[in-house]
Design a binder for these strands. Structure first.
Lengths: 220, 220
DNA sequence: CAAGTTCGATACATGAACGTATCCGATGCG
DNA sequence: CGCATCGGATACGTTCATGTATCGAACTTG
């Protein structure tokens, strides 16, 4: 129902295409230069435009940064979802490996994410965006992980805690892996850590009833 | 033995003091504005100098950033060491809690670290600096952690793996905690995750001989 | 206490990025 | 096919950060 109060913007084909080209260019430039050191002109040049195009589509670099990050972030979630849906009957071990190879391909993306994290730590509204995204990731990943664990005969007592742990491990180890490119050990240890976390936050169902050092439900 | 080839710089008292004031100011400014958005003038103003002082002591903002980060980073390591040395006979549980409260006090520092991480991901020589620091942290912390675990009757089969896991968990959870300030749950989950990692990467010595789901030594 | 050196302040020239106002080709519509 | 609007290009003026070159006060040294 948009017979509008505002002038009823027609969204031209051209417009959406230039927006996308600008967003793509932004990812590249921010990854190379860093967000803080990037300029409007650099982004436009990379996209094959002049600054006129930019100011016609966005009002600030911050706005572009946010839009780009959210778009790319959503796509990453889609990829992850696809990778996990592809193996609905896999064992946790396999699913984990599949998920981990589906994700950390794009170094540029992780650079930009690190940049975005730093930026968000100084900006309450961006912080909320990041928190929301973390929640979205958990909502997507957790059910699948939990189902996989279930097939392996394990139950997760505190799902939210597992979700937070997985995200933390993912972020922390991603950085490590990127800091030493071509270090296979770091990659393997990353996988191992994930396995340990999955183990620690789940317990065998119908077994002896207790394992040593397992999770007790947390106080809220 | 420095009867020098270079003009034999006398290091005046004044000089070191202004250097320090500049470094302190840099931490604050970078934390507030972000490194990329910070200017030489902002730092100098905060320190109570003009740009002349800066250019007399450093050649670029990058140089200042690196110097500041290394200094602060070293101090952080000292704090950590002190906190852990303070309780040479503590149980792992206690020591963990002590270490965790000794560290994550300074939000500004973590902002700057995030900034530095992002920066280092684009800069090979900074990457090496970060990797070296991670190594230093492990060299400092691991022996203490391992001794504490030992007193609790636990042995660590793969020490390097534990070190990497601890750092990853620290980094990953720090971000989470800072993203939602005043969220006690995140803090508790952080602690819990540390406990689980300590458990997963160690095994009781002289016990039954095997626990389920423990670490096997890793391939190199 | 005089002479020299050091270090930060001041002044200046330069260049870069910004945002706006305007123009003109392209695109969609009748 | 002609017209109206849209969207990006161009051309400003302005602000701001940079780096250098010079100056002068404070401290060191003999």
């Amino acid at each position: 129902m948009p017979p509008d109060h505002a002038p009823a913007r027609r969204v031209t084909t051209r417009r959406v295409r230039t927006r996308q080209r600008l967003l793509d260019a932004a990812l590249e430039v921010f990854a190379e230069e860093g967000f803080g050191r990037s300029t409007v002109e650099q982004v436009c040049e990379r996209a094959g435009f002049t600054r006129g195009a930019f100011y016609s589509n966005f009002t600030s670099l911050d706005e572009l940064f946010l839009a780009m990050w959210e778009r790319r972030s959503a796509r990453m979630l889609d990829d992850l979802r696809a990778a996990l849906d592809g193996m609905p009957e896999a064992a946790p071990e396999e699913a984990l490996r599949a998920a981990l190879t589906a994700i950390p391909v794009d170094e540029a993306w992780y650079r930009v994410t690190a940049e975005f994290t730093a930026h968000a730590l100084r900006n309450p509204s961006l912080r909320r965006v990041m928190v929301a995204r973390e929640q979205a990731i958990q909502d997507t990943v957790l059910p699948i992980v939990i189902r996989a664990l279930g097939r392996a005969g394990r139950r997760v007592p505190d799902e939210a805690a597992l979700g937070q742990a997985l995200v933390a491990v993912h972020d922390g180890t991603s950085t490590q892996v990127l800091m030493e490119p071509g270090n296979a050990t770091a990659l393997h240890r990353r996988e191992a850590l994930f396995r340990h976390v999955l183990d620690s936050y789940s317990a065998p169902v119908g077994g002896t009833g207790d394992e040593p050092g397992e999770v007790e439900e947390e106080a809220r």
